[in-house]
Design a protein around this nucleic acid. Structure first.
Lengths: 369, 369
DNA sequence: ATGAAAGCGCTAACAG
DNA sequence: CTGTTAGCGCTTTCAT
């Protein structure tokens, strides 16, 4: 493996000159530059990353930090990762993937102190996240995907939940739906202050209010079974619902299954919009789901790009929201029943629909809280 | 940030002593070790990764190399990544994620020459993969997830397709199925020599022969539409099929949709087994899919562990196959019709089933080739 | 515009 | 068992 010394000798210049043509931090005459470049090519020279990192105190490595629990990554998180990896790679940086859960602050501190990372992108951020402080104290430049509660002097990229919910609701209202139920994450997740769950809840209330409609909401465990239960509870409470807006990617197929089980057709009887969903997942359903497609890889890319901008000196704070894009597929259509509050409702209820159970929902809090 | 020098001074020993208590490469008296450890704790010392890497010529970084094309990672690939990341992290190594497609051999050579990686795990391996040679020439220790055609002097972990297919077929045969259709990846993918497609095809022929059954096979494009088309073609050719074995994770939902469209119930009329599928995806279907669950994160973990064993000196070649685990869910049941070849078949065909089209399959090669 | 030389923080001979 | 010292390959003053 050729070293910079070898290149210098072959080109009959000093090592520093070679270094400078590489880094471009001082003017080099065209003649010498050519000589050096030729020597590099001849020797197939590649700078040693460790040596460069030690001397320059910049590793050209950025970390992608995320908790990696049992259930693995969803499609959206995976897109963050691939987007980030692509962006880092394109900029000549390396991306190290580090499993750092919210509880592993000590590990994180250790990682940060090794001076291996020039900066970090933090995923799956909680409203109150100890990892942020740890990184900041360690002096590691940081960009979040998601947001903590207090975002002053923090850089982040996140989904524009407000705008996303507004568009989804507008789409359904435009189709004549008025009894729209919002299926969120679990009550526990909302309690815990999980940003997407909290923000979409508020956005939904606001959006519905904007149309003069009542915000019907129900939590769901992150599973197919949770989806089934949530839909059952929603129907029990709101028998005349004509549309469901689903935030819970894990529950969506349970919801669809339960609809089918009850003989409710999508979209004829009930329209379904899935929020923050990848196109791949949306296409799995039959009919394919109308969805608010999350800008997953774009967020990953932008997070890394913002971070690199930090590292390159332009230390501006970067706070950016990206809405999910409405992609209309087959799961939404015109409302099948008359608006809620009227009494000619039964005329429009399909046969199978009369079989609905009217049991109380279990394990789920009251809507709207 | 404290350096080793600071620790040495505080502990009143030489830097080399500090270094040796850290690396353990030479005996240290308990007394000195304690002094040093105390000093480290006091100063909150963490070794500088770059300096250590430069001096020792070992970065403690391993690469996870994979092509990152448009459609993103599937659940199985994602599991490789998380498994690998967890294993690396547990062993005190860092994992850099590098997007290196089959065509990017130059990028790969450059990456390898930077001496940043102690070794690499290569994903999405093709039968003939230029990246393998490039890495070997660069002297980068390597473990594959998957296999090339010639595996002599290569280390790899891969799915045991033979065993997996055998178990899946045995499960179906045990339920009385005899007309079983195997839905593979696309003809083009098979032509290209994509290992999983080729190996499962051969395994299916062998497994069916072992039961004295005819191996019915059909390719499918990697999409829901491809799945629908494949099922239609399969029914056209084999109207009395009672089970489908699906290798194509992207097509599976199309197949299920098409079955539903035709009024064929799962598992009453047709049993479905999905191969090399993650539990998460299997749970998405209604009913949940009986599946051969891929040992995704285990493979990722084992690949990294094998690689690290290489790096730590035990340079044994590691070749290991792991079968997918049969997880019986709701999509398989007893065969609904009499064995193929008998004529009392029509008695058992459900009403909706008579509507099958008998058109020729289009865009799909003959089965069994 | 170029060179010489002093580190960056650590490992690993080489010497006791 | 411990200390001294020469690098690892590069960046970056300080000179010229």
């Amino acid at each position: 493996m050729a070293t910079m010394h070898d290149v210098a000798r072959l080109a009959r210049v000093s090592v520093s000159t070679v270094s400078y043509v590489l880094t471009g931090t001082r003017p080099i005459s065209q003649a010498t530059r050519d000589k050096v470049l030729a020597a590099m090519a001849e020797l197939d020279y590649q700078p040693n990353a460790m040596a460069r990192g030690l001397a320059s105190r910049r590793s050209r490595i950025v970390g992608l930090l995320m908790p990696m629990d049992e259930r693995g990554l969803g499609a959206t998180e995976t897109a963050f990762v691939t987007g980030a990896a692509a962006a880092a790679s394109a900029a000549g940086y390396h991306l190290v993937l580090s499993p750092v859960g919210v509880g592993d602050v000590d590990d994180l501190r250790r990682l940060a102190s090794q001076r291996m990372l020039d900066g970090a992108v933090l995923m799956e951020v909680q409203v109150s996240d100890a990892r942020v402080g740890a990184l900041q104290e360690a002096g590691v430049p940081l960009v979040l995907i998601g947001r903590t509660g207090d975002t002053s002097d923090l850089s982040y990229v996140d989904i524009d939940f407000d705008q996303t919910v507004r568009e989804a609701v507008a789409h359904l209202v435009g189709l004549g739906h008025r009894r729209i139920v919002y299926v969120n994450h679990s009550a526990a997740t909302i309690e815990a202050g999980y940003g997407p769950a909290v923000r979409t809840r508020e956005a939904f209330v606001a959006a519905m209010a904007g149309h003069g409609l009542e915000p019907l909401m129900i939590p769901a465990e992150d599973s197919a079974a949770g989806g089934r239960a949530a839909l059952a509870a929603a129907l029990a409470r709101t028998p005349d619902l004509t549309a469901v807006l689903v935030m819970n990617e894990s529950a969506i197929f349970g919801i669809l299954g339960e609809l089918t089980t009850r003989g409710l057709r999508v979209p004829d009887d009930v329209s379904v919009v899935s929020m923050v969903t990848s196109p791949q997942v949306a296409e799995l359903a039959t009919p394919a789901l109308t969805a608010m497609t999350s800008p997953g890889s774009a967020l990953g890319r932008m997070a890394v790009e913002a971070l690199l901008r930090h590292l390159e000196g332009a230390g501006e704070q970067h706070q950016q929201l990206l809405p999910c894009a409405l992609e209309i597929r087959g799961s939404t259509g015109p409302a099948s029943t008359a608006p809620a509050g009227t009494d000619d409702l039964t005329d429009h209820i399909p046969a199978a629909r009369t079989g609905r159970h009217r049991i109380d929902p279990t394990g789920s809090g009251p809507p709207g809280t």
